[in-house]
């Protein structure tokens, strides 16, 4: 009887110790869920979601303080990916936060008008604007996320958002439209009765 109690107690102690060490050893810094969410977000750092950047928004989603449909730059893809990650239903984008942009944008400073006030530099969340006080500023296009946060602070309204031109490197083959060709070829009643055979 005593042996059994001692053995059980010993085992409990040993495993307790083991778990305690494991907790120390494999300690995870930060919130891994927030990091996973952050990896899905587009990193525009625009603040349209109401949080000061993508990481704060990710943390807010992870702690349940924010909904998954607050990110206009991410659009439907981001909402779908977040829904998949968190095991919730996807929902339409919160229209209060802004619209989904059709094309990616980049900020361009009209350098003839810029007065060198550094206000846009301070507003840029990713340090993509180069310049100094009373010196002309310019945007490092490769690092601009198109967040538009620099547009409002500019006292002389010299920042424009223009579509990103990737040139030949950014060429994408169009999606083959064979189904559309078939739609044109076939009478409508045939298509209506066609089973969803194309989903693999």
């Amino acid at each position: 009887m005593l042996t059994a109690i001692l053995v059980a107690a010993g085992l409990a102690l040993a495993f307790g110790l083991l778990l305690g060490i494991a907790a120390q050893w494999f300690h995870v810094e930060g919130n891994p869920l927030a990091e996973k969410i952050d990896a899905i977000l587009p990193q525009t750092q625009c603040g349209q979601c109401g949080f000061p950047g993508c990481k704060p928004y990710a943390q807010a989603i992870a702690t349940g303080q924010a909904d998954i449909n607050q990110c206009p730059p991410g659009g439907e893809t981001t909402i779908k990916n977040l829904a998949d990650l968190l095991g919730v239903e996807a929902k339409p984008l919160n229209a209060d936060n802004g619209k989904i942009k059709a094309v990616p944008l980049v900020a361009v400073i009209d350098e003839a008008v810029c007065i060198g006030c550094t206000k846009c530099i301070q507003a840029c969340p990713v340090d993509a604007i180069l310049g100094a006080a009373k010196q002309m500023h310019t945007v490092i296009a490769a690092e601009c996320t198109g967040c538009e946060l620099c547009v409002a602070p500019c006292p002389v309204d010299c920042i424009d958002m223009v579509p990103v031109d990737l040139g030949i490197e950014g060429f994408r083959f169009p999606e083959p439209q064979w189904l559309a060709a078939r739609l044109a070829d076939q009478p409508a009643e045939n298509l209506a009765s066609e089973p969803e055979a194309t989903h693999g």
């Binding site: 750092q45 993508c54 990713v126 996320t145 994408r172 083959f173």
Partner: peptide
């Protein structure tokens, strides 16, 4: 089509990583 889409995704991804780092 799929190849250029994958490249576009990779571009977006590396750009997002850069933005995250700089932010």
């Amino acid at each position: 089509f799929a190849k250029t889409e994958v490249w576009a995704q990779e571009r977006d991804h590396s750009k997002a990583s850069l933005a995250r780092e700089r932010f």
